[in-house]
Amino acid sequence: MDTVNVSNQYATNSVTERAEFGDSNTPVIASALEHANMKSLAVKTATGLGVTLVELPVTGMLVLRARDDKPALAAALKSSLQLDLPNVLASNVVVDNGKSYCARWIAPDEWLLSCPLQDAFEIEQNIRTAAGASSIAIVNVSGGFTTIMLSGNNANDVLKKSVTYDVHPSHFTVGKVVNTVFSKAQVTMRCLDTNHYEFIVRRSFADYVWLWLQVASAEYGISIEIE
C-alpha cells in the first residue's frame, strides 16, 4: 500500500461550520483545567514565591512508533522538523520561528512529539510522506493530554514529595524524560532546567495532579500564572 489516508480530525464540518469557532481549521479544545478557573486563582496569588504553576494551552501531541523501521522514522523526523529521535530517557528540542517542537523517548519503540496544536495534522502528514512505505505508526493524541509546568526555587522540593524517582539534579538531569508515578497518577516528566519541570498528564488526571501540586506547594507559597 503506497498511499496513506489520514483524516484531519479537526477539519470536520461540525467544528468549522459553527459560527462561534469562525471558519478556520484551528482546533478548539478546552483546557483540561477549565473548571478550575485559572484566572481567578492567578489573581489571588502573589508572585515571586517558592513555586510557580502554569498549565500550558492545549499542545499538539503525536505518538510516534517504529520498531524495525526506526531509522526510517528518524530520517523522516529529521527531514520534516530537523529533529533527532532521542535515545533512552532523553528529549530533543527544536525551536523554529518561535514554534517549539520536542521529541521525548517513551519506550524503545515509542516517542512523544509535541508541537503547536494547529500544526499537528500537517506535521503528521509530512512525517508520513517522508517515511514512505516504512512500517511506522503516528497517532494524534493532542486532546488526550495536558501540560503542567512547575518552576521556582522550591520546585525540586515539591517533586521530592510527589514522586518515588530520584530527582536530584545530578540524576534527573536537564533534558531527561521519565515516565513515572506522580502520587498515584502516571506522568511523563521532563527536566527543562534546574528547578523547572514539565508534566504531561492524561486529561482525566489533570485535576488530580493539579490539586496535588497546589497542596504540595502550599508550604513554599505558590503563584499561578496564565499562559
Partner: peptide, 12 residues
C-alpha cells in the same frame, strides 16, 4: 532492561 535504570516497585 529497557529504561536501563533502577525504579521503584510502584512503577511495575
Amino acid at each position: 532492561p529497557y529504561c536501563e535504570e533502577h525504579r521503584e516497585e510502584e512503577e511495575f
